[in-house]
Simulated assay, not measured.
Amino acid sequence: MKVEALKSEKVKEFVEYCRKHRMEVDDSFLYEEDLKGFEPNADNLTYILTNQEGTIIGAASLIMDEYNRRGNRARFRIFHSEIADAFYYKQLLQALLQHKEGLEKVYVFIPLQNKLLMELMEKVDFSVERCAFLLVREDSDAPEWSLPEGYSIRSFRPGEDEQIWSEVRNAGFAKLKGNETPVTKEMVTKLISSNDYIEGGMKILFHQDKPVGVVRGAADEYENAPIMNIGPLAILPEYQRKGLGRLLLRAALQFAKEKSYKKTILSVNGENERAQALYINEGFKQVEGVACYQYYLNPSLNKEC
């Protein structure tokens, strides 16, 4: 067995490996649009495990984009071996960590039903930071809602509202595990040109003239059918616990209905019990769960779900 950096001549085989095993791992960055045109580079650091015939039997690929780097971390696109042995996972990890400059940790999401992979992560000295759950609402009807006096909602204006959006999102998520790293105006701008952008799907909540909340509805797919993904949904800390999150959620549900989506989907952190309760009360049902496993390059206390 040999661990080596992914070269251009092996990219096609690597992509096929990802397709073959994406149902066993978190597939958030293994959709066809993510794999199309994939290239190993500084943003996509990738190593493969090959057998004596040169066939790929394991792969580890880190997403080291600007957002993750600003948080001094890197997220695994895939971390998998066809041989369920911690030894090979450690080999792949150590190869990646030759490039650890500027990183404090690497992390990977594991589906909760994949107990074997979770056990392997623990043998490789990963620890659980948090759990997250995927919720789906199958009812296309939107609950009635109305804004309190002094509040209004309007659609995001490209070229004008990027700073507003980033400031509200960052303040609302400042203490949310996994989302503490602030987004920039430039990152918000990229949302407008992304494949999942829906015109009018980004909404801003105002109190008088003050922006206090944001929500986004984006095009997605679940179980081979179109679905609208709701998120982020963020409220300024001083405006939380006023029922405004529910109103923003209902505004997003109404938008989904207007765009003829039969289902909506969102994700929520396990420790965010208030948000979970809100979504369930609004008709969402949990369909999947993942554990976020982290590996600190410096010693750190383990955290559990």
Rank of each mutant, 00 (worst) to 15 (best):
N269A: 15
S194G: 11
I110R: 03
F87N: 10
K36L: 10
Y31W: 09
E39D: 01
S260D: 15
Q98R: 12
Y279K: 07
A277E: 09
Y67R: 09
D161F: 09
D141G: 06
K90E: 11
P211K: 07
I198S: 12
R250T: 08
G178E: 07
A132R: 12
G178I: 13
V268G: 08
S155W: 02
L103S: 04
Y222T: 01
Q98F: 01
E271P: 01
M1W: 00
L191I: 08
K12R: 13
Y296K: 11
I83Q: 14
E101M: 05
V15A: 12
P299I: 05
G283M: 04
D26H: 13
F38G: 07
Q254V: 00
F156V: 11
E101F: 06
M187G: 13
A59K: 03
I63S: 08
N195P: 00
P158V: 06
E180F: 04
D65K: 02
E223A: 15
K7L: 12
F255N: 03
V124N: 08
H80Q: 03
Y239D: 05
E180G: 08
V214L: 07
E16S: 15
P237T: 08
K190E: 15
L96M: 04
A59T: 05
D141V: 06
I227F: 12
N224H: 13
